[in-house]
Amino acid sequence: MTATATTVLVGAVVAVGVVWLAILSATRASRLNRLHIRVDLARQALFGALERRAVVARAIAAAEPAAPGADTLMSAADAAESAAPAAREVAENLLSAAIAQTDPANRSPALTSELAEAQTRVAMARRFYNDAVRDARSLRGRRMVRWLHLAGHAPRPDYFEITERVTRG
């Protein structure tokens, strides 16, 4: 092989490598973008389920205003709905504890089933959200994504950890 043929061969191999890296980078960046969209949609669904649970808790407190813990339940529901995103987990845990302190015997069967449905939706929405966060963080942790900064300026998603059901105690 002559020097020119070797140069052409090395140039072709480098060009193929660069094209392969560009295609791989584009597919990883596209996948990461879709995962971030999935995280955002799951967060919206989670906050919707949390707001619905707060509305049900408020309805329980309004139905039995003289019941023990009704004031606490009402204020916890208000605090959970108006909490800043950074303080939302704490506020939701306080709401869970306030819900657990109410006596199910004082509730109507309709409110009890409504609360059970709302809590189930919160549990499912939280699992979907945390699954989406896990997938996005896993892809963001890969070497190629970190080295080439394929995540751009998107913030790293965080898990949403709350106590779903608190037993009455």
Results as ranks from 00 to 15, higher is better:
R43D: 13
T120P: 01
G17L: 06
A62E: 15
N130C: 02
L24V: 12
A62M: 08
A97I: 13
R140T: 04
E92G: 05
D103A: 11
T2P: 10
M144I: 13
A63I: 07
D135I: 02
T163R: 13
A116E: 09
R34K: 11
P65T: 10
V10F: 06
P65S: 09
V13M: 15
A80K: 03
A83N: 00
G141C: 04
L24F: 04
G169Q: 09
H36F: 11
L115G: 01
V122N: 00
G169T: 12
R53G: 06
D131W: 01
A132I: 07
L50F: 03
L111H: 01
V8A: 13
A3P: 05
R142Q: 12
E164S: 04
A57S: 09
A67G: 07
A45I: 06
V18D: 01
V56D: 02
D103H: 03
G69R: 11
R127N: 14
D40N: 11
P68N: 05
I162G: 00
V39T: 11
L115Q: 03
A45M: 07
L35R: 06
F128L: 11
V56N: 05
S108L: 10
V145S: 00
R58C: 01
V166E: 04
A110Q: 12
A70H: 08
A154C: 04
F47V: 15
E51I: 06
A54R: 05
A5E: 15
G48T: 14
T7Q: 12
R121D: 09
T2V: 06
A76H: 01
A154S: 12
M1L: 11
V8N: 05
P65Q: 12
A66N: 13
I162E: 00
P65N: 07
L32M: 12
R53M: 10
R156H: 09
R31K: 10
A151I: 01
A59V: 04
A67V: 10
S82L: 08
Y159K: 03
P104A: 09
I23K: 05
P104H: 15
A5Y: 05
A116R: 09
F47G: 08
P68H: 12
R58S: 15
R146C: 07
Y129H: 10
F128G: 05
P155R: 07
A67E: 09
N106Q: 13
A67C: 13
V16K: 00
E161F: 00
V133Q: 02
A63F: 13
M1S: 14
A79F: 00
Y159G: 02
T7M: 14
T4D: 14
A105M: 08
M1P: 12
E81P: 00
S138I: 03
A125S: 07
R107A: 11
V8I: 15
A97T: 15
D40F: 01
A62F: 08
L148G: 04
R28I: 03
L148P: 01
